[in-house]
């Protein structure tokens, strides 16, 4: 067993806590950081702190943003009659890459999953309902673009049951998505196909 100076092991632990990074990679990253020029390290550190300080959730769509409301919500050239509901902020990025969708988004920040203790109250559903009550906003269609796994499907179903009585058209992206996968890993072609093939719930 090797023992590092505390400064290094703190750094390794820090990396290790990030998603998708195991102890080996954490170690490699830590040693890489030490070998970097001081200026570059400072820039990286600043980028981290800045991201945390200046980013928060949009008060309208719950996406990550540096201004409030966010750029998409503010963009007057976008259609206001369609809202695309996604699980994570990174799904908005994936969706935007398709250039097929010109409406607004709503980021749920998760999906319903009892085993993880996530129910409807733990994700941003109340925010969506509040949004729909806004008389200025005339939403005609809500597109469910939650992940095509059982939790994403359950969340889409929950929302569609909730929103049916409101009388808004609800569609679900379907065709072409990799079964059992996460939306963020789908390529553009697949996603635009999926968008075309959406169905009413």
């Amino acid at each position: 067993m090797l023992f590092y100076p505390e400064a290094i092991s703190n750094l390794v632990d820090g990396f290790n806590r990030l998603p998708g990074i195991g102890p080996k990679t954490a170690q490699r990253l830590a040693f890489h950081v030490i070998s970097m020029k001081e200026g570059d390290v400072m820039e990286l550190a600043k980028a981290l702190v800045n991201a945390k300080r200046h980013l928060h959730h949009c008060s309208v769509c719950c996406n990550i943003t540096d201004i409030d409301p966010c750029r998409i919500c503010n963009d007057q050239s976008r259609r206001r009659d369609m809202i695309c509901v996604v699980q994570e902020a990174k799904d908005v990025v994936a969706m935007e890459r398709t250039r097929e969708f010109n409406g607004l988004y709503h980021v749920l920040q998760g999906a319903i999953s009892p085993i993880e203790g996530i129910g409807p109250d733990q994700i941003r559903i109340a925010e969506l309902l509040r949004r729909l009550q806004d008389p200025e906003l005339e939403v005609e269609e809500i597109i469910m673009a939650t992940n095509p796994n059982i939790e994403g499907e359950a969340t889409a179903m929950y929302l569609s049951r909730l929103l049916k009585p409101v009388g808004i058209k609800i569609t679900r992206i379907a065709a072409g998505l990799p079964v059992g996968g996460d939306l963020e890993y789908a390529d553009e072609v697949t996603l635009s196909k999926a968008l075309e093939g959406r169905r009413e719930l």
Binding site: I112, P114, G119, P120, E153, A154, M157, Y158, R161
Partner: peptide, 19 residues
């Protein structure tokens, strides 16, 4: 189990029953 402990509402079952 959560429903039997009254922590969650029964109508949440529908989205799992269907799948």
């Amino acid at each position: 189990k959560e429903i039997s402990k009254k922590e969650k509402k029964e109508d949440l079952l529908a989205i799992w029953d269907e799948q």
